[in-house]
Design a protein around this nucleic acid. Structure first.
Lengths: 266, 266
DNA sequence: CTTCTCTAGGTACAGCGTACGTAGAAGCAC
DNA sequence: GTGCTTCTACGTACGCTGTACCTAGAGAAG
């Protein structure tokens, strides 16, 4: 595959994901010649690779410390500042040494993703009222997203599942157990729930990104409404009554989402 | 701005978006010396820049043709194949000529985004039943997303609003007018609605991305459920009853989302 | 001790976005 | 018409990216 640089998106659906450059290795040969540096059947999912095989010298770093270093950079300077060189330098390591821990940059992102999922403080057991529990969970999720402005974009682009994300999933399933919904339905509900919080955080982030951008957008919208091409938009703009309070927008929409989740299956 | 390469995300919220390299130009000087190549107050939003000023030679290309070329590349080879060089070559133009039409690559993405929003075939007036109209709209949206597998990722990363997106917005507002909700509330409803469809499409895309990846994920999940660390996950896996049919997952969740939208304000 | 496997890290390459500068074409004022 | 101005086209160059490949050397297994 000649094209490199696939920073966020996993891959296209139409073509084989990554097997192209691994498959031809030892293809057809009965004896695997000499050694196997990263064997062809190595799992794509980083969580399926053991962190340490216990053979050679002890690694100088851990997945946790690598993730922490990358997160620190992303928090301070944005996700685009997280390059392999940058993270390696932050760890005091050579650039290519990082590749001993993380076969591809995507996996570094996976590490970051799951590390943030470890920031949840989940109660040992659900509180009892499903709606209350879900609201508390959503608020905590939004807080984490706000703490790491780059996170929503990453979550939306890469549906990764690491150990910490599993802990979260387990908690969500526990909280929604009283609904009587089946496991599959509750997973779908979780997707809806997470998706909403994540998108809200992402919207918040871009809205806060720049006053100029927002002012321009408002101007463009107003101009469009005035043009007469978009009558309903114009009407929505000039409608009577107070506009909805933006500071409670999250709770308001969250309420609708939870209602949708708790509704009985059709 | 030393850091370039910001493929999808707009910017960090903490720092000024792009004014850094434009502001110092002619700062304090009373007379604007000589010419103004891309003046400092040029709008960030591409839709606020006129496509043609009518002075020099006629441009050889149009925004529409540029967007079409970029979309063709993205459809065929994925969003990462869309580089300025690649698009310019597809147009038969020199790389840097593209920058006469599109000041930054982000704006090229905006063009692509709005071009796909032009693929909706919207009826001249709402059909009458709000739920029916919304279901039809969601199906059309999903169809567009499936036609352009790279689209969900882009939409999730960049909340762009061009002329075609405005047409869509206007239609949504028209369809939801009978709900009695205010303009702001209907905009929030639209965000919820679009977000759901987009995330669903994005999920579909990654699920279809590779059999190996999906198999590994399933294996990892099963192993996690077996480990005893995630009791509710395990229970959800072994629960009795048929798992929900994946082929109707979209309609099922869409139904919940529409219910949430149509619910009266609290 | 030998051997084998693992880690650390340097070098190199193709490709990216785009700043900058030059050459020439087309519209406007006269 | 002439001349000025403003636009378009595009080559070159820079700093950055992910990562393939290779060489040493450390440390456990036999």
């Amino acid at each position: 595959m000649p094209s490199s640089k696939r920073p966020t998106s996993p891959d296209e659906p139409g073509q084989q994901p990554t097997g192209t450059e691994n498959a031809p290795r030892n293809a057809g040969g009965p004896a695997p010649e000499s050694a196997t540096p990263t064997p062809p059947d190595a799992p794509e999912l980083i969580w399926l690779r053991p962190e340490r095989t216990g053979r050679g010298p002890r690694p100088a770093h851990s997945r946790a410390s690598i993730a922490a270093a990358a997160i620190a950079i992303a928090d301070a300077e944005g996700l685009d500042a997280v390059s392999m060189r940058r993270v390696a330098a932050a760890l005091g390591a050579g650039t290519m040494s990082l590749y001993n821990y993380v076969p591809k940059k995507e996996h570094l992102l996976d590490l970051m993703l799951d590390a943030t999922a470890g920031e949840y403080e989940l109660p040992p057991a659900p509180g009892g009222d499903c709606r209350t529990d879900l609201i508390a969970l959503a608020r905590q999720q939004l807080a984490i997203f706000r703490r790491h402005p780059w996170l929503p974009g990453l979550v939306l682009a890469r549906p990764g599942i690491g150990p910490n994300a599993l802990r979260y999933t387990d908690h969500f399933l526990a909280v929604t157990a009283p609904t009587g919904l089946g496991g599959g339905a509750r997973m779908e509900a979780m997707a809806l729930f997470n998706g909403f919080v994540c998108q809200f955080a992402q919207y918040e982030r871009t809205a806060a990104a720049g006053a100029k951008w927002q002012a321009e957008l408002a101007g463009y919208l107003a101009q469009a409404a005035m043009s007469g091409e978009y009558p309903h938009l114009a009407q929505a703009f000039t409608a009577p009554g107070p506009p909805p309070d933006p500071s409670t927008a999250f709770e308001r929409s969250l309420d609708r989402v939870i209602t949708a989740i708790l509704a009985p299956p059709p």
